[in-house]
């Protein structure tokens, strides 16, 4: 199990024990974390599972694909350099302690 921390716009934080191999998006949905909508269910269509990755973790993630990059141009909350789609971040032991911020809006 890998622990992931979601920090909400009101600074409330939630720790989730995520299963290896799942996506960060799926971990949020499985554990009822609000603010990760995932309209397309993880098919990389919608950009409603947007998160801001804590600066300390950005470089530790696999680089984003061109598709993810294009989708991030359409996020409802502002795209920042640390923006990612949580459906594209795969949970692994190396990500134990990952911190992501949930944006104000997803659509």
């Amino acid at each position: 199990m890998t622990t992931i921390t979601f920090i909400h716009p009101d600074n409330r934080s939630e720790d989730v024990k995520a299963e290896e191999g799942a996506s960060v998006m799926l971990a949020a949905l499985t554990h009822g974390v609000d603010g990760i909508v995932a309209e397309c269910g993880g098919n990389a269509v919608c950009a409603t599972c947007h998160v801001y990755v804590d600066d300390a973790w950005v470089a530790k993630l696999d680089p984003m694909s061109d598709d993810e990059d294009a989708l991030l141009d359409g996020t409802a909350s502002e795209r920042l350099p640390n923006s990612r789609l949580s459906c594209q971040i795969k949970v692994s032991p190396a990500l134990d302690g990952l911190v992501v911020r949930v944006p104000e809006r997803q659509s």
Binding site: L29, V37, A38, E39, C40, G41, N43, V45, C46
Partner: peptide, 16 residues
């Protein structure tokens, strides 16, 4: 999230 009204996978509705 996860309903299949728009399908799922590589053919999931591109106009959703």
């Amino acid at each position: 999230s996860g309903h299949v009204g728009f399908g799922s996978g590589i053919h999931m509705c591109v106009g959703q």
